[in-house]
C-alpha cells in the first residue's frame, strides 16, 4: 500500500515541476467550455453552459486519463520500469500508483475547469452533489487510466501510443452525451451514446444537477472500472514475467 503512494508521489513531483504540461492540458477543455459552451446556438436549452459543463468535466478526465498511458510507455522505454521491477517491493504497486496518479491529476484538472465554468456563469451544482460529482469523476478516471495503462503495456513505442490516443479520445467524446441530450440526437447516435461508458459518467452528473442519483449509471460505471482494473493488472503481470 505504501509503495503505491511512493510511486504516486514520484509522478506527482515530476508533473508539478513540468510547468508547461500542467497548464497545457487545461487549454483544450477550457476552449470547449468557452468557444462551444458560450457560443453554440442551441434550441433544446436556455442555459447551454450548464448543460455542457458535465460533458467538459468528463472530457477533462478523458484527456488526462488517456494521456496518462504515455507515462508508463516512457517508464518502459527509458529503463525505469526494469529498475522498479528489480526491487523487492510489490510489482502491482507500480501499476496502481500510475492509476492513482493519473486519476488524481485528472481530478485536479477537472477542478480548474469547474471553477472556470462557474466563472462563465454555470450554476449547476449544490455542495452536496459536488462531492458525488467528484466520486463519479474518480471512478471514470480509474476506468480510463487502467484502460490506457493496459494499452500502454502492450505497445512498444510512444508513437504507437500517441496514435492510439488520438484515435480513441475524440470518437469517445463525440459519441457520448456530452454535447447534446439523447432526445435531439439522431436515432443511430443515441443508441451508441447510451452504451458509451463516457456517457454513464455524464448522465450521472447531469442527474445530480436535477437532484437525482442515477444509481444504474453509477453502478455500471463502477462495475466496468473494476473489470478493467483487473484486466490491466493481468496485462501487467503478463508483461512483466
Amino acid at each position: 500500500m505504501r509503495d503505491i503512494f511512493y510511486y504516486f508521489e514520484r509522478d506527482m513531483l515530476r508533473w508539478l515541476r513540468g510547468r508547461f504540461s500542467v497548464v497545457s492540458a487545461l487549454v483544450m477543455p477550457a476552449a470547449w467550455l468557452i468557444f462551444v459552451g458560450l457560443a453554440l446556438p442551441t434550441t433544446f436549452t436556455e442555459n447551454y453552459i450548464d448543460f455542457i459543463t458535465p460533458g467538459i468535466l468528463v472530457l477533462t478526465m478523458l484527456g488526462a486519463s488517456l494521456q496518462g498511458g504515455s507515462l508508463l510507455i516512457f517508464d518502459k522505454i527509458l529503463g525505469f520500469l526494469n529498475k522498479f521491477l528489480a526491487l523487492p517491493s510489490s510489482r502491482e504497486s507500480i501499476l496502481l500508483g500510475k492509476i492513482l496518479f493519473i486519476t488524481i491529476r485528472g481530478l485536479i484538472q477537472a477542478t480548474v475547469i469547474m471553477l472556470l465554468a462557474l466563472i462563465l456563469g454555470a450554476s449547476f451544482l449544490n455542495p452536496a452533489s459536488l462531492a458525488l460529482t467528484y466520486g463519479i469523476l474518480a471512478i471514470l478516471g480509474v476506468l480510463l487510466s487502467s484502460f490506457s495503462t493496459a494499452i500502454a503495456l502492450s505497445l512498444s513505442d510512444h508513437d504507437a501510443y500517441a496514435a492510439f490516443n488520438s484515435m480513441v479520445s475524440m470518437p469517445l467524446f463525440f459519441t457520448s452525451s456530452a454535447l447534446m441530450p439523447y432526445a435531439v440526437m439522431p436515432a443511430w447516435l443515441s443508441s451508441i451514446a447510451y452504451w458509451n461508458p463516457v456517457s454513464y459518467a455524464i448522465d450521472a452528473i447531469r442527474a445530480l444537477q436535477g437532484g437525482v442519483l442515477a444509481w444504474s449509471r453509477i453502478g455500471a460505471l463502477a462495475l466496468l472500472s473494476v473489470v478493467v482494473v483487473c484486466i490491466s493488472i493481468r496485462q501487467f503481470r503478463k508483461a512483466t514475467l
Binding site: L13, R17, G79, N82, K83, A86
Partner: peptide, 14 residues
Amino acid sequence: ISYVPQDMAVDIKL
C-alpha cells in the same frame, strides 16, 4: 541484489 540498467534512468526533474 541491485540492478542498474544501461539506460541511465534517473528523474531529471527531481
